[in-house]
Design a protein around this nucleic acid. Structure first.
Lengths: 165, 165
DNA sequence: CCAAGTTCGTAACAGATGTTACTATCTGCT
DNA sequence: AGCAGATAGTAACATCTGTTACGAACTTGG
């Protein structure tokens, strides 16, 4: 399946003219990268209602919070790889969380360049409050799929992601 | 399939403690909205090599160019819905294209608020140059999938997108 | 035919994001 | 020990993006 071509292009011809030079026709609405970006944006928006509108966190802060919720402590430098944020984004997100009293930082005892981040108890409370909503959103999204569609989707995402590494 | 929960959470318990309060554990790496955003970003980056690095267009300009390539002329106000860009993004993208001599604008004869956009011949040449690369990228992405995986993916994207409208 | 409201596109500001380069600290090599 | 890199985090700047609000042009109801 070649998603982004028009039917005419798939047949190797361009509207009007019969197949001369190989068709170079791209239909944006059918172009896979565009469709994927669009869907991801829709999903992101739907999920952002949870952490952004209800709890006024940025997307980056939410990601960091999600990581922090699963561990007691974590070195700042580990956050980036886990959240796909660069170090500046992590720095800003953690600062944001610290400012609101959601996270706190302390120096690493053996390496004074590093900082160790953890949730405050207020942060942990917030985490426990948000997560059910976040999981609910995810479940609602996946609920429109059949069991096997969800499985294929999972596989497809892994495959593509791996192919792009 | 509930992607974003840990196995323990799926069993209704949290590490160490047996199932007491309903598990509220979220594993970011398995959380569907995160995974989708990540994949879309990877794909976007891979495709951006084509229009951004090789031809120094922004994502928005590329979308507008893609629309323009399929039509002779188009009213500015029609571009937004077709590209999922808001009117300010369209305004900037078209300006960018105009500045580089890729697109040109003329006033609408019957409504002087509107502008009609079309590609210059340089723009059309650029379009014909880019499109094969863009389609190649798409094909390479889809090539990692089986025929039926691609079909399910197509269906899944439609379903989800529709559910979020 | 004209006041009130709407639509089109953009200017201008504000806020977010990416980039560069810097400080402080650590590590390894001689 | 002491110096040449490497690494962690951030300040400061440049750029991009979103938002508000505006001027110009159109439409509509009285």
């Amino acid at each position: 399946m070649v998603m982004g071509r028009s039917d005419a292009a798939r047949r190797g011809e361009t509207a009007g003219r019969p197949a001369a030079q190989a068709a170079a026709e791209l239909v944006l609405q059918q172009y896979f990268p565009y469709r994927l970006a669009r869907l991801a944006e829709q999903v992101s928006l739907a999920v952002a209602e949870v952490y952004s509108e209800r709890f006024s966190l940025t997307r980056q802060e939410w990601r960091v919070l999600a990581i922090l919720g699963a561990r007691q402590e974590i070195a700042t430098k580990e956050i980036g790889p886990l959240t796909t944020l660069d170090k500046m984004q992590v720095s800003r997100a953690v600062q944001g969380l610290e400012t609101r009293g959601i996270a706190s930082r302390k120096p690493h005892p053996d390496d004074r360049r590093e900082l160790i981040v953890s949730l405050t108890s207020a942060g942990r409370t917030l985490y426990r409050k948000i997560v059910p909503y976040a999981l609910e959103r995810e479940a609602a999204l996946l609920a429109v799929l059949t069991e096997e569609e969800a499985e294929v989707l999972d596989r497809v995402m892994r495959k593509m992601s791996a192919a792009l590494t």
